[in-house]
Simulated scan of single mutants.
Amino acid sequence: MEEGITKKEKIARIISVLTVVPIVAFFTITLLYIKFKKEFISPLWYFHSILFLTILPISAYPLKHILPKYKNAGRDGERKLAFILAVSGYIIGSLLVLLLRGPLIVKKIFAAYVASGVLLAFVNKILKFKASGHACGVSGPITLLYHFLGKPILFLYLIMPLIFWSRINLKRHTYKELVAGTLVGIFSTLLGLWLL
């Protein structure tokens, strides 16, 4: 165990890493691809989704060590870069899906992520309330899975208390910020799906 890190903190960190937005996106897209392979039309749309919703956003973590602007910016710089790359991936991926006339299921996935990114940015930047991107990035995909797979998926919402516990123990968010992030994820996903 790292110096000064308790077992509780170590577990909280593991939960936090396993539920980071791009990893949750990877599992969400993969599950949808397994269940709805025909609707994806081609494996290329699966890889397109993984590239723009997982690989590009997660690249923020190694890039923070390379890019001079973020190298010494600490946790806030890391969060900012991750948010920029995530929203960029969501928007570029969405535009390509629309321009290339991608399958409806992929359009819905991207609509949900774009709506989440936009609404989270609005709450955090315009309303100046630090809603949890982590909670949003888990509750939104669960809502997306519920849309496609129905009631059997509802049990996944039981993950949310673990995320709350983890983020509070790591002193990354308050309970109110986590609740706000969860509600943003659910509402924005429903909004994104409704728009299509």
Rank of each mutant, 00 (worst) to 15 (best):
G4I: 01
K8S: 14
K8A: 13
K8P: 08
E9I: 11
E9W: 02
K10H: 14
A12C: 05
T19H: 15
V20W: 07
V21A: 10
A25Y: 04
F26N: 06
F26K: 10
L31F: 05
L32G: 05
F36Y: 15
F36G: 02
K38S: 13
E39F: 14
F40Y: 12
F40L: 11
S42A: 04
L44D: 13
L44K: 11
L44N: 15
W45C: 09
W45M: 11
Y46C: 07
S49F: 09
I50G: 13
L53N: 14
T54V: 14
I55G: 08
P57S: 01
S59M: 13
P62D: 02
K64W: 10
H65M: 06
H65F: 15
H65P: 09
K69P: 10
K69N: 07
Y70L: 02
N72H: 14
N72D: 14
N72T: 10
G74H: 13
G74K: 07
D76T: 14
D76H: 14
E78M: 08
R79C: 04
K80Q: 09
F83W: 13
I84F: 12
G89Y: 03
Y90P: 08
G93W: 02
S94R: 09
L95C: 12
L96I: 15
L96F: 08
V97R: 07
V97G: 06
L98R: 12
L100M: 10
P103Y: 08
P103K: 11
L104P: 00
K107W: 12
K107F: 14
K108S: 06
K108D: 09
K108G: 01
A112K: 00
A112Y: 00
V114R: 03
V114A: 01
A115E: 00
V118F: 03
I126K: 00
K128G: 00
F129Q: 02
A131T: 01
A131P: 10
S132E: 03
G133L: 01
G133H: 01
H134D: 12
H134Q: 07
G137A: 13
G137Q: 05
V138A: 13
V138Y: 02
S139G: 14
I142N: 09
T143A: 11
L145W: 04
L145M: 06
Y146D: 14
H147C: 08
H147I: 02
L149N: 02
K151G: 06
I153L: 09
I153Y: 03
F155R: 01
Y157C: 00
L158I: 07
L158R: 05
I159N: 06
M160L: 15
I163S: 02
W165N: 05
L170A: 09
K171E: 13
R172C: 06
T174S: 14
T174F: 00
E177F: 03
E177V: 12
A180V: 08
A180P: 15
A180T: 14
A180S: 11
A180C: 10
T182N: 03
L183A: 08
V184E: 00
V184C: 09
G185W: 01
S188K: 00
L190I: 15
L191G: 04
L193D: 05
L193G: 12
L195M: 09
L196D: 07
